[in-house]
Each structure stands twice: as C-alpha cells, then as structure tokens.
C-alpha cells in the first residue's frame, strides 16, 4: 500500500513536470498518505500572492508558508475540511479555488446555466422563425 501511494505521488508529480516544481523536498511529509492529502488540499487553495495559482504550484513565499501550515495541521490530525475552513476563516472564501454555494455566489454558480438556457431559447426561436414566420426563399425559376 505504501509503495503504491509513493508511486502515485511520483506519478502525480510527473504529470506536473512541464511546470516548475514548487513543492520543495524539505516540505514533504514522510508519511505518503498525509503527503498525498497535503497535495490534494494544496491544489484547492488559491495563492493570495499570484492570484490564479493554487499554492501547490506557486513559488511565492506565502504559498510556501501555507503549504507547511497545511502539512502541520494534517500531522496534528485535522481533516481536509477543517484545514480548508481554517484557511477560509483567515483569508475568506477567496482562498478556495472552488467557491462554496452561497447567496453571494449564486450568480457564479447559476450564471452558466442561465446562459445555457438563454442560448437555447435564442436558438429555438431562431429556428421557429425560420420555419413559420420568414418565408423561405423560393426557387429562382418561379420568380422569373
């Protein structure tokens, strides 16, 4: 099991090999289960310095501190959700790359659905118009 997980970690880091590898070897936990969880959490936490990167990918100093913090809390026995909440308490929901479903994020979550339905409606009425309202162009011969 441990070997398998180590392999998973190695493979998952290979898939990032096109990028600069931000997680430093000295940051990593010796327990592969916890390390894998740390990576999983770090990919969901936004770096507040380079605002469109998860802390897992970021070379910013703060991202490094947050990665260490995530690992410390894991070792202390926190669940993934507790750690996410710990960070959101301090930096706001902004720190979560996938924002929670709330009144303030309704537009964000339902907006795409609204656009999909709106687009569907536009297309439906376009085709309906073409069928009924607008006369089809007749064959040229008849017009002569």
């Amino acid at each position: 099991m441990r070997r398998f997980l180590m392999l998973m970690i190695v493979l998952s880091s290979l898939s990032y090999s096109s990028k600069v590898f931000s997680v430093q070897p000295d940051e990593m936990l010796s327990d592969p289960v916890l390390e894998l969880r740390a990576r999983e959490i770090s990919q969901k936490i936004r770096c507040l310095v380079c605002q469109n990167q998860p802390i897992d990918d970021s070379d910013a100093d703060l991202a490094h501190d947050l990665r260490i913090l995530v690992r410390e809390r894991l070792v202390a026995g926190d669940t993934n959700d507790q750690i996410m909440k710990y960070l959101a308490d301090r930096y706001g929901d902004y720190v979560l790359l996938s924002p929670p479903f709330k009144v303030t994020t309704l537009v964000l979550w339902l907006g795409p659905l609204f656009f999909l339905l709106g687009g569907g409606w536009v297309m439906a009425s376009f085709y309906r118009n073409r069928k009924n309202g607008v006369p089809r162009p007749r064959a040229r011969k008849a017009d002569w």
């Binding site: 507040l48 310095v49 703060l62 501190d65 947050l66 913090l69 301090r90 930096y91 706001g92």
Partner: peptide
C-alpha cells in the same frame, strides 16, 4: 519570525 501571526491576521503581503 515565521509569519504565523501574519497568517492568523490574514496578511498576504
């Protein structure tokens, strides 16, 4: 020294 109080205050720079 370690920036932990900063994190608790929500400091990001």
């Amino acid at each position: 020294r370690r920036g932990r109080v900063g994190i608790d205050f929500g400091v990001y720079g």
